[in-house]
Simulated scan of single mutants.
Amino acid sequence: MSLEGQGKQVLEVFRGRLPEAWNAQLLKLKGGYYLSAEYADIQKRDGSEPIYFILREAGEISGMALGFLTRQWMRWPGRQLCREFHWQTHPVVRDDDVARLEAFVDQIVAHVDAIGVLGFHLHSEDARISPRHLDKNAYACRSRLEYSIPLSEDPAEVMARIASRKRTYLRSAIKSSLLEVREEATLEAVSKLIDFQEVSRDRRRKRGEDYAISAPSAAKRIFEDYIQSGQGKLFLSYQEGVPLSGILLHCWGGRAYYTMSGCSEAGFSANAPLLTVWCAIQALCRQGYVELNMGGVGASGADPADVSHGLYRFKRSFGGNEIECYTYERRSTGLRAQLGELLLKR
Rank of each mutant, 00 (worst) to 15 (best):
G254E: 09
I281D: 09
S261G: 11
L284S: 03
S261P: 00
V297R: 00
E322V: 15
V307T: 14
F318A: 08
Y238M: 07
A256W: 08
G310P: 04
C251L: 07
A283S: 13
Q338D: 14
L244P: 09
V297Y: 05
Y257E: 06
R313S: 06
K315V: 00
R286Y: 00
L274C: 10
L284Y: 00
E324H: 15
A302G: 11
G319T: 04
R336Y: 15
N293T: 02
L248V: 04
L311P: 10
Y326A: 11
S237M: 02
L234N: 04
A305E: 14
G295A: 08
G254Q: 09
Y289S: 00
T333V: 05
P243G: 05
D303Q: 06
S237I: 04
A280F: 02
G253P: 08
Y258P: 07
Q239L: 09
I281S: 11
E324D: 14
G298H: 06
Q338G: 13
G262Y: 02
L311W: 11
M294A: 11
A280C: 05
A302S: 13
G301N: 01
G298V: 10
L292K: 14
G267M: 14
A280D: 02
S245E: 04
V277T: 08
G241N: 13
M294S: 10
P273W: 09
L275I: 04
Y238T: 08
A272I: 14
C251T: 15
E265R: 06
P243Y: 05
S300Q: 03
A337F: 15
E291L: 15
S269N: 14
S261L: 00
Y258M: 06
E265F: 01
E329W: 13
I323P: 02
G288V: 02
S245K: 02
G301V: 01
W278F: 08
S300R: 01
L248F: 03
D303H: 04
Q338I: 06
I247F: 05
G310V: 03
R255Y: 00
E324M: 11
G295T: 08
G319A: 05
L311S: 10
A337Q: 13
G319F: 06
A270G: 12
L311D: 07
Q282C: 14
R255N: 07
L248G: 01
L284N: 00
A305S: 13
I281W: 09
